[in-house]
Design a protein around this nucleic acid. Structure first.
Lengths: 138, 138
DNA sequence: GTGCGTGCAAATCGTTTGCAGATAG
DNA sequence: CTATCTGCAAACGATTTGCACGCAC
C-alpha cells in the first residue's frame, strides 16, 4: 500500500500522522497472515532501527481503538492483528500453526438466519465467528 | 461429584490417584463457568492450604493430555478449563466477561453439512466451533 | 506552544521449568 | 522399591506501565 493512502487513512481517523504509525500500519496491511506485535516489530526494525517494541504495542492498540485494524487471541494466547475488518472466522492448522482467514457469505447468512430463529435468552448477539481447526493435507 | 466416581475417572485414565488430583478435578467438574488455573487454585486452597499453584497448572495439563478435560484460550489470552468435552462453542459477554457454553445439535449438523459441501482446499477439518460475542440484556 | 506520541527500562501477569523430597502402586 | 507426583522458587514470554523527551499540529 502506498504512503499517501496510508497517511489519509490514519489522519482521517483523527490520529496524528507519524512515521512510526505509517510503517506499522503498512506492515499490518501488507502482511500475508495475522502478525503478532513481535512480527510487526521484526518486519520494520531493519528499516527503522530506533523504533521500540513498546511503541509497536501502543500503536497497534491505538489502531484497534480507532477501528483501523482488529485483534484476536490465538490458540497460544498471543495477540494477532489483522487489517481485514470484515473477516472474523479463522482456520487454524495444527501442523504448521498457520492461521488463515475464512470468509463465506453463504455461511454468514445461514448463521444469521439460524440465530434469528434460535435467540439466546436475555442475550444480544453482536458478532458470530467460526473457528476451524484441522490440518493441511498433501 | 462424589469421591469414588472421581477416583474411578482418574484411575481409569491411567493416572495415579492423589489427593491433589481429586480436588482439582472436582473443582473443574463442579465449576459453573470456565475456570482459570487461578480460579481452581483459589477454590481449593482454603481446604488444602499446602497445595501449590504450580501443581494446579501441571495437573490441569495432565488432565488435558489424558483427555479428561479440555482447555481453550479466552479473549484476554488466559487459559480456561472445562470438563464438558462435547461443547466447543462459547458465548462471551462484553459486559460481564462471562463465558458460557453453547450447545445445539441442529447447528452442529448444519455446519457439518455445510463444510461437507464446501470443502476447504488441501485442508482436513477436525473441529468446528462457534464464538458468539455480545451482551446480556435486562 | 501544547498535547499527544515515542523510546526506554522496569514492572506485571499468566504460565513453565528444574529440582529435591514425598508418595502411590 | 521405583516411577511418578508435588511444592517451591526461579525463569520465562508477552504485554503494560511510567516517565522524560520529541514532534505533529
Amino acid at each position: 500500500m502506498n504512503i499517501n493512502k496510508v497517511k489519509n487513512i490514519i489522519s482521517e481517523s483523527g490520529l496524528k500522522f507519524t512515521h512510526q504509525r505509517m510503517v506499522i500500519y503498512k506492515s499490518i496491511v501488507d502482511a500475508e497472515n495475522h502478525p503478532t506485535a513481535e512480527h510487526v516489530f521484526d518486519s520494520i526494525k531493519t528499516q527503522n532501527p530506533s523504533i521500540s517494541l513498546g511503541t509497536v504495542y501502543k500503536t497497534l492498540d491505538t489502531f484497534v481503538n480507532a477501528g483501523l485494524i482488529q485483534k484476536f487471541v490465538d490458540n497460544k494466547g498471543v495477540m494477532r492483528f489483522d487489517a481485514i475488518l470484515e473477516a472474523h472466522s479463522h482456520i487454524y492448522c495444527r501442523k504448521t500453526n498457520e492461521i488463515s482467514d475464512y470468509q463465506n457469505k453463504a455461511l454468514e447468512l445461514m448463521l444469521k438466519d439460524f440465530f434469528e430463529k434460535h435467540k439466546i435468552e436475555d442475550f444480544e448477539i453482536d458478532e458470530i465467528s467460526i473457528v476451524i481447526k484441522g490440518q493441511k493435507v498433501q
